[in-house]
Design a protein around this nucleic acid. Structure first.
Lengths: 300, 300
DNA sequence: TTTTTTATTTTTATATATAATAATCATTTT
DNA sequence: AAAATGATTATTATATATAAAAATAAAAAA
């Protein structure tokens, strides 16, 4: 039997969940229109999924009449945890992994075909992904030439840091204006606890900074409530993360400092101490700048 | 005879220019290696172009020996002024034209195939262009659904204006710090003259604002000397331009005000009056905000 | 030895075809 | 009349093929 597509599998699982409380002897009829609305897919998809359920013996189809025969058990569900919804996800994962493992360094060249072969996608999927990804300013190409990782020099680093400084300073001011009862304050105090927990055992847990850093800056940027700011959150976040990869040398010490700086900012935020927040943030961004510059120089 | 591609035509023209000072009886031999370096194309391209020159009777090919026979006349050159270098340029022109003529309004849907047919490109070219263009935040799509012009509501407008305000305020501060002798100051005073000229005959020339506006804000943003800022100059510029299209009602009055505001900013800039610049810029951005908001409301 | 050329291989750009999914419209059922 | 369905059409996603251009490597010439 041929393997169904991800969407069909997910839809089958969705229908199974819908009918999971079916009782023996009950009269349960499936309407594709209703299911389509509920699962937010087209009726065509629902019908393919119901046909699949018929072969599983869970549903009986009699013309337009689709009746549930038995309640589903766990083996009826498709395991979609390991599948990917599309080729695009495959190449995205594959490419980001290359970056994160330092297989693609600034100045490196690579071709679409090469990526397509090694990732198991076709060239068009790869190409479209690269076009989309080029928005981050990390890769570029000229017509009929190979793609190239952007050379990461001091100027690039300084521009990035300056841009980030302006966006974050603005957002954090907005954040300070958020009223007391808002959910963001409990989010922040939770985040503070997590930071403290990691700091307690920093020798073993210092690598968790990466995730906390992303979360922290996400909360800050989100306060701007501005889609253009958020667009750039992704860009800056990715690029910074990318370049932190290579200074493994003093990673423990560096991460410890960053964690402590986060703690200071969040504490000042929770105390609603405007000038304290600004100063702490300024310090943090300056440290980040130094780190980034060092990583830029390390590559020359 | 089949029409050569744009690149070949341009290369032929390039070689013709190279040998344009050929004298009767002179011994002029073409080396593809040298030409390739000079014209910045590959040797493959040079060889195709030289073959073309042989059929035109300008060059004689004897194995590896390529000798110029006569000096080229103007009819030997290809007219590439009307051709486009690639399909991508076609679709880009076509799509921007649709936008500018108000054929694509917020909320409108359109399909790749539709665009491909009407523009004469294939779907892949269209698709890749749309992916690239979606970076501007003006169009979006969900999987297997049509593309859609983003609904332009008040929130969108406010976010855009706020983002612009932060970027431009920062850039103009940088601009003020540029030393006296820099070329930017003469650029600005030229731009001031152009503004004044248009204002002299504003009833007939008010449509020239669009170009002056782009130039002015470009000079301001460029002062940031930051690629991330510049990326967004394009985005903001396009979106604003797009949305100004529809309030044709008070266009004369509106453009006149904008021109006068530009004059004020540039004057203050040339006088190096920091606070004056800030105030004038603030006023200008507020006017732009009002205009944009009115255009957002007009669409509801 | 260095440069140039020929021949070959890679790579991107473009075109076309098929499959999967969504949307539509006329008809039937409720 | 409203909702649901079947049949059809439209559209995107994916795959494959061909052409144009660039890059490379080995051979030839300077």
């Amino acid at each position: 039997m041929n393997v169904q597509s991800y969407l069909i599998q997910e839809t089958v699982n969705g229908i199974l969940t819908e009918i999971s409380d079916f009782q023996e002897g009950e009269m349960l009829v499936l309407k594709d229109n209703t299911l389509a609305k509920k699962l937010k897919v087209s009726r065509t998809t629902i019908r393919t999924a119901i046909t699949e359920l018929e072969t599983k013996g869970i549903v009986e189809i009699n013309g337009s009449h689709k009746q549930v025969l038995r309640s589903p058990n766990s083996s009826d569900y498709f395991d979609t945890s390991n599948s990917v919804s599309s080729k695009e996800e495959i190449i995205e994962k594959y490419f980001l992994d290359l970056i994160n493992r330092g297989k693609l360094l600034p100045g490196d060249k690579f071709s679409e075909l090469e990526l397509a072969k090694s990732s198991g996608c076709n060239t068009i999927t790869v190409r479209e992904f690269l076009i989309k990804f080029s928005r981050f300013g990390l890769i570029e190409k000229s017509p009929r030439a190979k793609w190239q990782m952007v050379k990461f020099d001091e100027k690039f680093a300084l521009e990035l840091v300056e841009f980030r400084r302006i966006l974050e300073m603005n957002s954090i001011t907005q954040l300070l204006a958020v009223p007391e009862g808002d959910a963001v304050w409990s989010e922040l105090s939770e985040l503070l606890d997590k930071h403290l927990a990691v700091l307690e055992d920093v020798e073993n847990r210092y690598t968790e900074l990466s995730e906390l850093d992303r979360k922290f800056h996400f909360i800050v940027q989100r306060a701007s409530d501005n889609r253009f700011f958020m667009q750039f959150f992704d860009v800056v976040s990715l690029i910074c993360h990318y370049h932190y990869q290579w200074n493994k040398g003093d990673e423990l010490e560096r991460n410890k400092v960053a964690l402590e700086e986060h703690v200071e900012i969040i504490t000042q935020l929770l105390a609603h101490n405007t000038s304290g927040v600004i100063i702490a943030m300024e310090t943090h961004l300056n440290t980040a700048k130094k780190t980034l510059l060092r990583s830029a120089h390390g590559l020359e």
